[in-house]
Design a protein around this nucleic acid. Structure first.
Lengths: 180, 180
DNA sequence: TGGTACATGTAACATGTTACATGATTAG
DNA sequence: CTAATCATGTAACATGTTACATGTACCA
């Protein structure tokens, strides 16, 4: 028995500790709370929920409108979650296509490169602003565990923006060290 | 014709611009040059090479010892690579299981949490040291495009370590703001 | 000449993504 | 009442990972 959970499934179980939820609820919750460092799609959520139900880790309630089913954590699910949480977390995975574009940058005209860099830089600026706004809006007694994730996001985005700001002109024709 | 390349396949074509290589050669090259922000396994390399050959983007030479085959870039491959490189790079993907452990940290005893954090922190310290050593050892006239990737890695690792250093005691019993 | 590490792959599987189908609710 | 959007899912596919098989070189 006791299939080993993957991190995505385990996170769903984690959120179900706060009460029964539908796939949609879980998707919203996950994107809001762990979306910054763990992405998931609707398909994944529904598939994992089905498997969790199969394994007896979650129980589906009676179908409501739109065939909506609310899932509740079972005792087995609680145990599986705990056991997953005890384990050593795997190393982080970073896949950054923009850095590939830069790495092979000599095959790309300087102006195209600069345009791509500018557009991505803007995206990161927007994301940082959003994170900082969220942080500002957070109550002083906010949950320290949630806050830590947000803090990571902010530090990450700042590091990325510093990186952009310090690209040498050979790499970013429009940039240079002027930025940050 | 002209299947759309994925980033992994495109990277292999990118490296083949420097001359014919076997799967093993490509794996080594990739791990060294883009491993910091783009991971690949031997299996992937061999599978993508087979597909690239199928599509006429690379050509296998005669089998050598151990069935070793050296692949050479074709004109079609060069074109496919260029076209991929022109495209807008996708957003980066970060999946950081440790942050999930932290996010669900209230379900985990404080000492276990502290142990996990300490071990990951050490890993990041080691990686930063390694990157910095590589940077120190680099010749002054090193390729700016390669250097940019290394610089990203260094800034990223520093941001992560700052994050560790500023975790509140509720989250990291052993840590606190003392670190950095 | 026998063992170990290197190199090349294949197969099976798990995970993640995209495209699609469909029913409910809401705004006009 | 109709169109747009929300919510729930399924199916097909692409990618990534793990486990295994095999041959070769090198070293004791």
């Amino acid at each position: 028995m006791a299939r080993q959970l993957n991190a995505t499934a385990a996170s769903l179980l984690g959120f179900l500790h706060e009460g029964p939820m539908s796939g949609w609820d879980l998707l919203q919750t996950a994107q809001e709370r762990i979306g910054g460092f763990w992405s998931l799609t609707p398909s994944q959520v529904y598939r994992e929920l089905a498997r969790l139900a199969d394994d007896g880790y979650a129980e589906a309630g009676a179908p409501g409108p739109r065939a909506r089913r609310v899932f509740a954590l079972t005792d087995d699910g609680r145990a599986a979650f705990r056991s997953w949480l005890q384990g050593e977390p795997a190393a982080e995975q970073i896949r950054y296509p923009l850095l590939l574009t830069v790495a092979f940058g000599r095959h790309l005209p300087a102006d195209r490169r600069a345009a791509i860099l500018a557009s991505h830089r803007a995206t990161h600026e927007a994301r940082l602003a959003e994170y900082e706004e969220t942080q500002r809006a957070a109550p002083a007694d906010a949950d320290a565990f949630a806050t830590a994730g947000l803090d990571f996001g902010i530090r990450y985005e700042r590091a990325v923006l510093d990186w952009f700001a310090h690209l040498p002109p050979e790499v970013d024709a429009a940039g240079g060290t002027g930025g940050g």
